[in-house]
């Protein structure tokens, strides 16, 4: 097996029931991200070069040195009978030109693949879709596509890129899911409605509570209705 040239792997979750609903999936976390979200649940995965360090306690991903791809593939392969698929997340997996090679190997194990992206790399996303290397794409949105996005992402963001990624997925016949990170200290009800309009026609939209407050100190908001913002999997698709 040729393991040279695979993307840098910063973490492995050997099984998850939540990263791809309806499937038991392993989750491979690639190192490196082009955003700097203040509420990032895995800040150790953001630097392109993995640093050493201690466990951050944010949900199981162990920071530090990269994991040898061979070990990861071994672990996934040995469990392939119990797994339905593998989710490749990050960081931002689409930063890596070698992502298709990793997906190809995982596909060769007889497993389905999903990529979790922040949507900032539409060209890489298009290439993946055209090469038919993913069975599902999950795109995370953090704010309506306006100036607020850069606040939520902690850095300047090419909104056009995210917009193109959204359109790509909406127009693609394959499976997709939009995950909306809901931080009541950042987003108003109107923001959420605007996001709903952005992804109108989506097959599936999941509301995801922010792991940590984006803007510490700002009071939370009441979006009205009985649901609040707490639960995942509340469908905005019809909104």
């Amino acid at each position: 097996m040729e393991l040279e040239g695979l993307p840098p792997i910063g973490g492995l979750l050997e099984s998850s029931l939540v990263h791809w609903e309806g499937r038991v999936a392993a989750v491979v976390f690639l190192q490196g991200c082009n955003l700097a979200c203040p509420g990032c649940p895995a800040p150790h995965l953001v630097p392109r070069a993995a640093a050493g360090g201690a466990e951050d306690g944010s949900g199981g991903v162990v920071p530090g040195n990269l994991i040898p791809a061979e070990g990861v593939l071994d672990a996934v392969f040995s469990r392939r009978a119990m797994l339905d698929g593998v989710v490749v997340a990050g960081g931002e997996p689409l930063l890596h030109d070698t992502l298709p090679d990793l997906l190809e190997i995982l596909r060769s194990f007889g497993l389905q693949t999903r990529v979790h992206t922040n949507g900032t790399r539409p060209r890489a996303l298009r290439r993946l879709l055209e090469a038919d290397l993913v069975d599902s794409v999950a795109l995370t949105l953090r704010a309506p596509l306006n100036a607020l996005y850069s606040v939520a992402a902690g850095t300047e963001v090419d909104l056009g890129g995210i917009w193109r990624s959204v359109e790509l997925l909406l127009g693609d016949p394959g499976d997709h899911e939009f995950r909306v990170v809901v931080d009541p200290r950042l987003l108003t009800r109107e923001d959420l409605l605007a996001l709903g309009r952005t992804v109108a026609g989506a097959r599936r939209v999941v509301l995801e509570p922010a792991a940590r407050g984006v803007l510490a100190g700002r009071p939370g908001r009441d979006y009205g209705g009985s649901g609040g913002t707490g639960g995942a999997d509340r469908n905005l698709g019809a909104a």
Partner: peptide, 15 residues
């Protein structure tokens, strides 16, 4: 065990 991840070369598990 819930989120169980593998650390780099040590393949240590945290749960």
């Amino acid at each position: 065990g819930r989120a169980v991840a593998r650390a780099a070369s040590s393949v240590a598990r945290v749960g």
